[in-house]
């Protein structure tokens, strides 16, 4: 079985995956997709399975589809990448399967966005549908703040004209990041919001600690991973008075924060899962 790790910016995660593959005697190669090209009509691929690890969502989605077109199995698949990379599509998938998720509306103009926010009530959260690390995510306390944020969106960018707005969920000063590999939980951490920021992303300085989850919570997270198609995923959830709600599922999960505070080897689980996927 030949494994390719496809990437566009080499992070610690990709290096750890390569090291683990070598340690497991897997025939592995690295592919910097920025310096490669793909023959979409050849239907032949040097790899049996590809770990798609691009930092750019748009690039990663198309890289996954290109490898699939050439006959390789891709983790995560282009369909999983498509759903997870667009917050609106992920919300639809979660809600349709009954996964508790924050109340969310989508609007396609500034006027529609204000209508959606008024319907949700304040405070509320405005997020870009594509993007990560908490970037451009805004908590608005009232209508005036909402108008300021909405008006700052650039009219020339089509994605800036998708207004994904969500209720602000009251939670402890932390959320839960669960790394799911196939049908198993590889790691679960609490991410504490740093001083002066309401967001918990580790990329924003959020601190990580091992999380304790009930059996019911674990089931919920595994189901959330299944409804987007399964694979190697980062499920983000919040603890509320009414139980856990899932607000995001990440399709190209970063795990160095979780790996530093949890036992077990996340890279080993990912490589093992990739090899199992290749055999299916």
């Amino acid at each position: 079985m030949r494994l390719t790790i496809a990437y566009d910016r080499l992070r610690l995660e990709e290096k750890l995956l390569l090291e683990e593959a070598k340690a497991m005697n897997v025939e592995a190669s690295m592919e910097d997709v920025k310096t490669a090209s793909f023959d979409l009509t050849a239907a032949e691929c040097r790899s049996d399975v590809v770990l798609q690890r691009c930092i750019s969502h748009v690039r990663g989605l198309h890289v996954a589809a290109a490898y699939e077109g050439m006959g390789a199995r891709v983790v995560n698949s282009s369909e999983v990448t498509r759903l997870c990379g667009d917050k609106m599509l992920a919300t639809i998938a979660l809600a349709r399967e009954g996964i508790p998720t924050p109340r969310t509306r989508i609007a396609f103009s500034a006027e529609g966005a204000m209508q959606a926010l008024d319907g949700l009530g304040y405070p509320a959260v405005i997020k870009p549908v594509i993007g990560s690390w908490g970037r451009l995510v805004a908590k608005v306390r009232d209508r005036d703040e909402a108008q300021t944020v909405i008006e700052s969106r650039r009219a020339e960018d089509p994605y800036d004209q998708l207004f994904y707005v969500q209720e602000y969920v009251r939670r402890p000063p932390r959320d839960v990041r669960v790394i799911v590999v196939g049908d198993r939980i590889a790691a679960a951490i609490y991410r504490y919001q740093p001083d002066g920021d309401w967001r918990t992303n580790v990329a924003r300085g959020g601190k990580a600690e091992p999380a304790k989850m009930s059996g019911e919570e674990q089931e919920l997270v595994l189901k959330a991973a299944r409804v987007v198609g399964g694979g190697v995923l980062g499920v983000d959830a919040m603890e509320t008075e009414k139980g856990m709600v899932v607000h995001e599922v990440n399709g190209t999960v970063e795990f160095k924060g979780a790996a530093s505070v949890t036992p077990g080897s996340i890279p080993k689980e990912i490589i093992r899962y990739a090899m199992e996927t290749a055999k299916r």
Binding site: S56, G131, W133, L136, Y159, N250, G251
Partner: peptide, 25 residues
């Protein structure tokens, strides 16, 4: 900088890409 390795194994540097709006997890 991003490292580029040439066919002969030569190491060159090119300016790293700036963070894109679609970057992340």
């Amino acid at each position: 900088y991003e490292v580029v390795i040439g066919a002969q194994g030569t190491i060159e540097l090119k300016s790293a890409e700036q963070v894109g709006e679609d970057w992340g997890e």
